[in-house]
Structure formats: structure tokens, C-alpha cells
């Protein structure tokens, strides 16, 4: 039985959501249309016009002539280990920060959450390069991976800790009474429950690593190791930008991330109820 009030409420919800969605989507429509246009067409007709044809020449050019097909592989090589390591590290540290008491906890928490997020790459570029040079890691994929793991782990620690903190304590106590070790409790009980939060932090750290620009730029100088965001800058000249190719490149760069999110988002619901009831 659906009440009148309920219908009205749903209607209101939908209208808010639709308006916001349009607000969010307009730039994507422009990007998508722009990626089919020709540079000449933008020069002649200006920014807002439909593409004159739906030719995929831009995509071919970006993938083949601008080597984006190789940049893809490089970006995957940097992203996958970063996300896996960062999130495993974060699950562990968030566990300790959420459930255990120990000396220097406050300082350690600061260093493994906020500090790691706020020390942005541009702030430490020169010393970081010098460190990597001393470690002989310049041009090794490890060079951008290690600091990126640190930053991502701090962000993920923050998200997961907040999720753990909000869980009912009885849950943990019950399993500990059953005689499980802390290690087992973490991986067998908490991780399944925290699936929505883990997926969320994994999704966001993936996207940010995927789009990281400065670290791979400075630390990977070998032209064979260019990543996608660094490759995007090839469309920007000193005075002029090849806008259609830039937009095509961005579309190519972002589509895998969107697909990735679509695949994983079904895990975003009802983590808790499943975990508890099973």
C-alpha cells in the first residue's frame, strides 16, 4: 500500500536527484561530444557545436599515434600494486587505530591519516626526487608506487577507521570470546562486514592513483614508461591546446574507471547485514 505522502516523497526525491544528475552530467556530455570533433572544427565553429560526424579518428589517433595504448599498460602497472598494497596496509592500521589502545596512539594516528593526505606531491617534489635518486629508483615503477601507496594508505586508513569505529562493539567481543585470534577476527569477521567501506576506499584510491600526474612525471623519465595523465599533457602546447584530442584522451582515460566502478558498486550495499547474519 503506497500512501499519497509516499508518492509525493518519491516524486520529490526523484526531482532532486534528476536535477543534480543533470548538473553533474553536463560536463560529461560536453566532453563526450568534444572528443568526436576535429581541431579545425573547433577553430572555425567555436567550442559549442555538434561534431560534424561520429568518426572515431580521434580515438585512433590518440591510441595509436600518441601511444595511449602503451600508456594504458604503464598506468595499470602503477595502479594495481598501489591500490592492493595501500588497502591491505590500511585495513591493518585502521584495525589497530579503531580497536586498540597503545602509547603514542594520537601521534601515530595523525601520521597515518591526516599527515599522509595533506603532504601533497608538489610540496615534496624536489626532496622526493633526491631520495629516489639515492635509492636508485628513478625510472623504476616502484618510484611513483611507493609514495602513492603511502598517500592512498593514509586516506584508506581514515575511511576504514571511521567505518570500524561506528560498528557495534558486541560484534568483536562475541568473536573474541569464541577464541579467535586478532588476526582472524580482522580478516574473517571485520573485512567481510567492512566490504562497502573497503570497496569505496579502493575505488577512490584507484581513481586517484590512475589520475596521478606529478609523481610519474618526475620519477619516470623514460619515455617508454609514460602514464595516461602524463600523456594527456602532450595535447597542451605552450600557446595552444589540441582540445579535441585532449578530450578524447580524457574519455579514454576515464572510461576504464567508470566501468570499474560499475562492476564493483553492487558490493556497496548491505555489507553489514550480510556479515552479521551469515
Amino acid at each position: 500500500m503506497i500512501s499519497k505522502k509516499q508518492v509525493f516523497k518519491n516524486l520529490l526525491t526523484y526531482s532532486i536527484l534528476i536535477v543534480l544528475s543533470i548538473f553533474v552530467l553536463i560536463p560529461f556530455v560536453l566532453m563526450f561530444l568534444g572528443s568526436f570533433r576535429e581541431h579545425v572544427n573547433i577553430i572555425i565553429n567555436g567550442a559549442l557545436a555538434f561534431p560534424e560526424s561520429w568518426s572515431i579518428d580521434n580515438f585512433k589517433e590518440v591510441l595509436i599515434e600518441y601511444n595511449f595504448r602503451y600508456y594504458f599498460i604503464n598506468t595499470i602497472i602503477v595502479t594495481v600494486p598501489t591500490v592492493i598494497l595501500a588497502n591491505i596496509f590500511a585495513i591493518m592500521s585502521a584495525y589497530a587505530l579503531a580497536f586498540m589502545e597503545f602509547p603514542f596512539k594520537r601521534t601515530i594516528k595523525l601520521f597515518t591519516t591526516v599527515v599522509g593526505i595533506m603532504i601533497a606531491t608538489p610540496f615534496i617534489m624536489i626532496p622526493l626526487y633526491q631520495l629516489m635518486a639515492r635509492l636508485n629508483l628513478i625510472d623504476s615503477y616502484l618510484a611513483p608506487i611507493l609514495p602513492q601507496v603511502a598517500m592512498s594508505a593514509c586516506f584508506a586508513t581514515m575511511v576504514l577507521r571511521s567505518f570500524f569505529k561506528g560498528l557495534p562493539k558486541e560484534l568483536l567481543e562475541a568473536s573474541l570470546v569464541d577464541g579467535a585470534t586478532s588476526w582472524q577476527v580482522l580478516w574473517k569477521i571485520l573485512v567481510p562486514i567492512a566490504k562497502p567501506a573497503i570497496i569505496t576506499s579502493a575505488a577512490l584510491t584507484t581513481v586517484w592513483t590512475w589520475n596521478a600526474y606529478l609523481l610519474p612525471l618526475i620519477l619516470l623519465q623514460d619515455p617508454a614508461k609514460v602514464t595516461l595523465p602524463v600523456g594527456l599533457m602532450f595535447f597542451k602546447g605552450r600557446y595552444t591546446t589540441n582540445i579535441p584530442l585532449m578530450l578524447t584522451g580524457t574519455t579514454i582515460t576515464s572510461v576504464p574507471m567508470i566501468i570499474f566502478y560499475l562492476i564493483f558498486q553492487r558490493h556497496l550495499v548491505k555489507g553489514l547485514s550480510q556479515g552479521v547474519l551469515d
Partner: peptide, 24 residues
């Protein structure tokens, strides 16, 4: 040859980072 062709701003940062170390 081993060539790196990059936008100037990007290149400049790479050079600033590498050259003073005697690298690059």
C-alpha cells in the same frame, strides 16, 4: 639516441630535479 619529448613545464621540472644531481 634516447629522447624524452614533453611539454615545457613538465620538462622544466624534470630538468630541475635531475640536472643538479649531475643526472639527466
Amino acid at each position: 639516441f634516447q629522447r624524452v619529448a614533453r611539454p615545457l613545464d613538465d620538462l622544466k621540472m624534470q630538468i630541475m630535479a635531475a640536472l643538479p644531481k649531475g643526472q639527466g
